[in-house]
């Protein structure tokens, strides 16, 4: 079996966005997510010696981040004090009755699945972006995620508009193929 090595120098460039997306969907706060990613990298550096090389680097980092997210929720919960015990079925005081029958999930609702799906979708897209050639990924990210103007991107990267659109086209085609199996 092929063993994996750690390259901490490249972590920020390679995984920061992926980990950030993972964290942001779980804590829904960009600032906290950023701190968690940073903590993850630091924890990773400190325990790099313990890395056995049987998982891919990113999987290993995600595992650390998972712990960080759990720790984060523990921390904010302990601040709140002990959990409140609620005796009523409903937390809405203006609800007409207080019947458990009213509280069951609506079988026709797909709201819960939607958030779950969006979360997976975000990671799937991020994963596919990371598989693109570097330049294409960069242009696509600037244009699509950061929403930069065509002209600004051209000036920053020193390319002309037709170069940009060719790269965007290749990136989008690449993404379509990459996402194809699961999302189209």
């Amino acid at each position: 079996m092929e063993t994996n090595n750690l390259n901490p120098d490249k972590w920020v460039d390679l995984y920061a966005d992926y980990l950030f997306n993972y964290a942001v969907t779980r804590v829904s706060d960009a600032e906290i997510a950023k701190d968690l990613v940073q903590d993850t990298f630091i924890a990773g550096l400190k325990s790099a010696k313990k890395f056995k090389g049987d998982a891919a680097e990113r999987t290993w980092l995600i595992a650390i981040l998972k712990r960080k997210v759990i720790d984060h929720y523990r921390k904010i919960n302990s601040k709140k004090g002990k959990a409140e015990v609620r005796m009523s079925y409903s937390s809405q005081t203006d609800a007409e009755g207080d019947w458990i029958e009213e509280r069951i999930a609506d079988p026709n609702s797909n709201f819960e699945n939607d958030t779950l799906e969006n979360e997976e979708l975000g990671l799937a897209i991020q994963n596919c972006i990371s598989k693109l050639p570097k330049k294409q990924a960069q242009v696509f990210t600037m244009k699509t995620i950061e929403g930069m103007e065509t002209e600004d991107i051209c000036n920053t990267l020193g390319i002309n508009a037709s170069n940009l659109w060719v790269m965007i086209h290749r990136a989008r085609t690449g993404l379509m193929n990459c996402l194809n199996q699961n999302w189209f």
């Binding site: 950023k34 969006n118 979708l121 975000g122 897209i125 699509t144 989008r172």
Partner: peptide
């Protein structure tokens, strides 16, 4: 291509 655009919007991607 249109589908990809809507997927990207749906995922509300964010980066550092």
């Amino acid at each position: 291509n249109v589908k990809l655009t809507s997927l990207c919007n749906q995922a509300r991607l964010s980066i550092l």
